[in-house]
């Protein structure tokens, strides 16, 4: 019962958004709760055009997928060594990774702009890719290493006796065992990259390289916001995230029993 109520509360905003995305602006102004009298599919066409989604979608997909793959890969590798190995300075490295999670993004805009300008990569997708990876590595590493730390210690020992190398252990034992956590960080990374706004705003000027969140901002002006078309745009922008989630959801709960090879 509680679960059903909770799910209702959680799904309501989604329904509300989709319903209103089919109304006219006047209908929405006069009554934001009613069903649309006529289903205005043209809002979607309008949103597609105003937010330049045709172009921005492909940019966003490219950046988000690339950034997600790289962050998870680099993060998993770093987590493996941080959680399964002993070395001096380990604590310091972990602490270092904490810093990236602690500073508000708006404080980073001017320094990041100047950095990218000096590196000469303003207005390229690299200017988004690197900060995205850098600022999502901390959460990725923290989640993954806490997960890997909980594996029994005898895994490597038996693997070493079987003659496995360091990378072999990582690739064939640790990664498969980490599947639920990998699914989690992949989902979170993709959402973060997909929705990232502030860096994209200041680091990209060229229309050919802009991402979806920048397009979606076009609906809000100085004195008014075109809510119905905005909701149509938001609904479309939500789809890739939902697809990624549904695709990875099964790995979230299919853990040890299915994936792990125990030595």
């Amino acid at each position: 019962m509680v679960l059903i109520l909770y799910s209702l509360i959680n799904t309501y905003p989604l329904f509300w958004m989709v319903l209103n995305s089919f109304k006219t602006a006047k209908e929405f102004s006069l009554n934001p709760f009613s069903l649309p009298t006529v289903w205005h599919w043209e809002n979607y066409k309008e949103a597609w055009r105003v937010a330049k989604l045709g172009l921005y979608f492909s940019n966003s997909i490219r950046v988000s997928v690339l950034a997600t793959v790289l962050t998870v890969l680099l993060g998993a590798l770093a987590s493996y060594f941080l959680s399964r190995f002993e070395f001096r300075g380990k604590k310091w490295v972990s602490a270092l990774f904490l810093f990236g999670m602690l500073i508000p993004v708006h404080a980073m805009l001017v320094p990041m702009f100047i950095l990218m300008q000096k590196l000469g990569i303003l207005n390229t997708l690299w200017a988004l890719l690197f900060p995205y990876i850098a600022f999502n590595l901390p959460i990725t590493i923290f989640i993954l290493s806490s997960f890997m730390e909980a594996f029994p210690r005898d895994i490597e020992e038996s693997a070493v006796m079987d003659g496995c190398g360091v990378l072999r252990i990582f690739w064939s034992i640790i990664l498969p065992m980490s599947r639920p956590a990998l699914a989690t960080v992949t989902i979170l990374n993709f959402i973060n990259h997909w929705n990232e706004f502030a860096f994209a705003l200041v680091l990209i000027n060229r229309s050919e390289l802009k991402t979806v969140p920048l397009g979606l901002a076009n609906f809000a002006g100085e004195y008014s916001t075109n809510y119905v078309v905005q909701m149509a745009g938001l609904t479309m922008a939500l789809l890739p995230v939902v697809i990624i989630y549904l695709f990875l959801e099964k790995y979230l709960v299919k853990g040890m029993t299915a994936g792990a090879v125990k030595g």
Binding site: L74, L77, A78, F81, F87, V93, P111, F130, P131, L137
Partner: peptide
């Protein structure tokens, strides 16, 4: 191996997160 494994993540992180933070 430890160095090799940590280096890529650390490099990107140091240049694109720690450096701007220090600048701030």
């Amino acid at each position: 191996w430890i160095v090799l494994g940590l280096a890529p993540a650390l490099l990107v992180y140091l240049l694109f997160a720690v450096f701007p933070i220090l600048q701030s």
